[in-house]
Simulated assay, not measured.
Amino acid sequence: MATVILVRHGRTTANATGLLAGRALGVDLDQVGREQAAQTADRLAAVPVVAVVSSPLERCQQTARLIIDRQAGTPYAPVDPDLTECDYGQWQGRSLSDLATENLWPVVQSQPAAVVFPAGESMAAMQARSVAAIRRHDAAFEAEHGPGAVWVAVSHGDVIKSILADALGMHLDLFQRINVGPASVSIVRYGPSRPSVYAMNTDAGDLSWLTNIVPAGDAPVGGGVGHNAL
């Protein structure tokens, strides 16, 4: 099994002003977001990654570039449109405070699997294409580099939440229980019988243990010894 590190982009100018950026062009990291992404890149510098796959939107590519620049090697760095932001349609560019008055808002909160954004994408379609992309890349990197391969996917909050929900075996209607902050790191390994979630929404801590992770078989009864014992 390869290991995927899911990284959300750092804070943007839209995040800071309460706007739903969606797929709008020209939405960059603000100063706080650049600092967040740089801190995440420093954490990942201890892990030689084979690839950094990014959403095509600027804020993700800016975050990915900081990660790549701090790697000792030169990871493969493709852009994958299947990791792009949800198409929020007519909601794009509007303030979150305004959107909270829409009839669709409580459905987004409690039943996201039923949501289709006006003139946009359904949340179920967002999850399906992003999970398929992660699993496709993961299988390819494992086939090329072996089960110890570690790679990074840089994407968006709702996209990463939907990927984590899938890995946890959660229905999409429950994915609002997951938080994914700017420049946060979450870690998943896909095994032959089930995915294993090693971390979610972390913004600090040593990641060097990922260089020595041992492919797991059955889940250890009682919790196992943990990665610090490697």
Rank of each mutant, 00 (worst) to 15 (best):
R59T: 12
R59S: 10
R59N: 09
C60P: 06
Q61L: 12
T63C: 03
T63R: 01
A64L: 07
A64C: 07
R65M: 11
L66S: 01
I68G: 07
I68A: 13
D69M: 09
R70D: 04
R70N: 08
R70L: 11
R70S: 11
R70A: 15
R70F: 02
Q71R: 01
A72F: 04
G73Y: 03
T74R: 10
P75A: 03
P75D: 09
P75S: 09
P75Y: 09
Y76G: 09
A77P: 03
A77L: 10
A77K: 02
A77I: 07
V79H: 02
P81L: 08
P81V: 13
P81I: 09
P81C: 10
L83D: 00
L83T: 13
T84I: 11
E85R: 01
E85I: 11
E85V: 09
D87N: 13
D87I: 11
Y88C: 03
Y88S: 01
Y88D: 01
G89K: 00
G89E: 13
Q90P: 03
Q90E: 14
W91D: 12
W91F: 03
W91T: 02
G93P: 02
R94S: 10
S95E: 11
S95R: 14
S95Y: 12
S95Q: 12
S97P: 04
D98W: 06
L99P: 01
A100H: 01
A100M: 08
L104E: 12
L104Q: 11
P106T: 14
V107T: 15
V107G: 07
V107K: 03
V108S: 07
S110T: 15
Q111W: 04
P112L: 02
A113S: 15
A114R: 07
A114Y: 06
V115Y: 02
V115Q: 07
V116G: 08
V116L: 04
V116S: 08
V116E: 13
F117A: 13
F117C: 13
A119S: 14
A119Q: 15
G120A: 05
G120P: 01
G120I: 01
S122C: 00
S122T: 07
S122V: 08
M123E: 12
A124C: 11
A125R: 01
A125T: 12
M126N: 10
M126F: 12
Q127A: 13
Q127P: 05
R129Q: 05
R129G: 14
R129E: 00
S130N: 04
S130Q: 03
V131F: 05
A132I: 00
A133C: 03
I134K: 01
R135L: 15
R135Q: 15
R135V: 15
R135P: 06
R135C: 14
R136G: 04
R136K: 15
D138R: 09
A139P: 06
A139I: 10
A139N: 09
A139R: 11
A139E: 14
A140Y: 08
F141L: 14
F141T: 12
F141P: 06
E142Y: 05
E142I: 09
E144Q: 13
E144T: 14
H145I: 03
G146A: 11
P147H: 06
G148K: 00
G148S: 12
A149C: 11
V150K: 08
V150L: 02
W151D: 14
V152F: 01
V152T: 12
A153V: 00
V154Y: 01
S155C: 04
H156A: 08
G157S: 14
G157P: 06
G157M: 06
G157Y: 09
D158W: 05
D158C: 04
D158R: 08
D158H: 12
V159Y: 00
